[in-house]
Design a protein around this nucleic acid. Structure first.
Length: 528
DNA sequence: CTGGGGATGGGGCCC
DNA sequence: GGGGCCCCATCCCCA
């Protein structure tokens, strides 16, 4: 009996040992598999990053080649939009875009972008962009990042105020030459004054910026904007002026807090930036021998109030050179090494003035899009930013098509002497250019008090507000049906009249709306 | 078919 | 009279 007990005890002991061994083995297997899994994930992520980078490289190369094929001598154009990057754009005489040279298709690690919400008067909005130019840096400068650098890049934090000075990326070699550049928004008042210096083919632009003082507050749009939290409209009040003094980007993370002053903490936020993934509007041009382009340029993308985090950056001290009929290009004006502000507060254009010397072109908006935000203060608005960015891209396609199909490019009339800097479309007055450019910038200064939707045009806001009020002032005389909009009533009336103005050119079938005709042709005559 | 937003162009008004 | 701005009509597209 005692032996039996001992035997059972031994059995139990052995079982325990075996169980422990089995557990250990299982744990080991799980750990190994987990490690393998992690490794695979990491490798996949690296591959994704690499492929993404290659894709960007290819797109930029394609755009550059196309541009160079059209104007091989002097184009230094920013290709800001997707369509153009694909080469879909039609680079007519004045079409503005910028293309980086090969080998500079990614943002350098040492390009800290500081973000800060400025004061209510926005007197000094400065972006500091440290660019490392390969040619300037000389041999030994790394052209490509390692993955580790990527991580460091991701760790860059956009900070506020004076902290921007400490933001300099320390990952690059200390001896590496770098140039600090900054973009400053300078207080001013509305309107731009363009002076054509025909002898030198240089157009000097002096901007008076609106985003300050009583002018700003007195503008009904600005009033609404300030109250409702939408960023100011672009256009004449936001004009590009490069300023090479050290500073920070004033960049509102929360549109509701715009113009609330520097002390408002909600206007500043920290976010990680992925320079590779930031399709900045202006990109580094490093053709130092030519000096056409400031290698310190930067692009900022404003996404209006919808995302409530973009703010137009106004640049100070920019010289834009134009060679022949080339589009304007930004020039550092020789400040390649020191990068400190030495220049004047002018924007020099050498635009396509030969064919249309009276053209007044409103300024482009160089805005920053934070495509990789990890900001804690951004909240859910980030999804809006992506949506809006796509809207902007799509809208640019539309605008480009319009420009191609009869815009100012194809024939500038006197009535349309004001050109959009993004698509070159002409308008009869600067205000219309400003409104139109909101298509590209995404700025929506008109905010609904009921639902906080924002609109680029006051009329569209008015239209929208009938959604809340339920007002339907347009009634059908045939069926007493009521509509909030006249165009909808007009469309409705076709139901009664049987009007079918859109006929298929292939089969003769008629439709009440163009879109029905289009659908019909796609379905039945798609091979035509 | 309806209802919504986006965008453009024209007309009127004001300076 | 011309330029600039505002309002409105209208068209387009989408859900």
């Amino acid at each position: 009996m005692a032996n039996c007990m001992v035997f059972q005890t031994q059995i139990a002991s052995i079982m325990e040992v075996l169980a422990n061994a089995a557990v250990a083995e299982i744990c080991k297997l799980v750990d190994d598999d987990y490690a393998v899994f992690r490794l695979e994930i990491t490798q996949s992520q690296k591959e994704n990053r690499s492929l993404r980078r290659k894709l960007q490289l290819l797109e930029l190369k394609v755009a550059r080649e196309r541009v160079l094929a059209i104007r091989p001598s002097s184009v230094k154009i920013l290709d800001k939009y997707r369509g153009m990057a694909r080469g879909e754009g039609h680079l007519t005489g004045g079409h503005r875009s910028f293309v980086k040279p090969a080998g500079h298709n990614t943002w350098r690690d040492d390009q800290p972008i500081t973000v800060d919400e400025g004061s209510g008067t926005s007197t000094q909005h400065v972006i500091v962009i440290e660019s490392t130019d390969a040619e300037a840096a000389g041999p030994g400068v790394k052209q490509e990042r390692s993955e580790g650098e990527d991580d460091l890049r991701h760790s860059r934090v956009i900070q506020t105020g004076e902290a921007a000075v400490a933001m300099e990326d320390t990952t690059t070699a200390p001896a590496q030459p770098r140039t600090r550049h900054s973009i400053t928004e300078v207080s001013g008042t509305l309107n731009a004054v363009l002076k054509s210096q025909t002898d030198t083919k240089t157009l000097t632009v002096t901007h008076r910026l609106l985003h300050t003082g009583s002018d700003h507050r007195s503008d009904p749009e600005r009033l609404a904007l300030g109250r409702l939290g939408c960023p100011p409209a672009p256009g004449s009040e936001y004009l590009p002026v490069f300023h090479q003094s050290q500073g920070t980007v004033n960049y509102c993370g929360d549109g509701d807090m715009l113009d609330t002053g520097v002390d408002d903490p909600s206007c500043s936020y920290s976010t990680e930036m992925d320079p590779v993934n930031i399709p900045l509007g202006l990109e580094t041009q490093t053709d130092l021998s030519r000096g056409d382009w400031n290698q310190n340029s930067s692009g900022l993308y404003s996404e209006g109030c919808l995302d409530k985090k973009g703010e137009v950056i106004v640049l100070d001290e920019v010289t834009v050179k134009v060679e022949g009929d080339a589009s304007p290009t930004w020039n550092a004006d020789g400040h390649l090494g020191d990068g400190q502000s030495q220049g004047s507060d002018f924007l020099d254009y050498r635009g396509s003035l030969e064919t249309n010397p009276n053209v007044t072109t409103l300024s482009p908006l160089y805005t920053l899009r934070d495509r990789d935000p990890v900001s804690t203060s951004m909240g859910t608005s980030d999804s809006h930013s992506h949506v809006l960015f796509d809207q902007v891209l799509n809208s640019n396609n539309s605008a480009r098509a319009q420009a191609q199909g009869g815009g100012a490019t194809s024939g500038n009339s006197k009535e349309k002497q004001f050109l959009c800097m993004f698509c070159n479309k002409g308008f009869s007055c600067p205000k219309k250019v400003e409104i139109h450019q909101r298509v590209h910038t995404g700025v929506k200064p008109f905010s609904c008090t009921q639902c906080h939707m924002c609109f680029a045009q006051a009329g569209n806001l008015k239209k929208h507000q009938r959604v809340h009020t339920g007002e339907k002032p347009y009634s059908c005389t045939q069926c007493e049906k009521r509509f909030s909009r006249q165009d909808h009533l007009k469309m409705h009336l076709k139901v009664h009249t049987g009007e079918r103005p859109f006929g298929c050119s292939h089969c003769g079938k008629r439709f009440s709306e163009r879109r029905y005709l289009r659908i019909h042709q796609q379905k039945n005559h798609s091979t035509l």
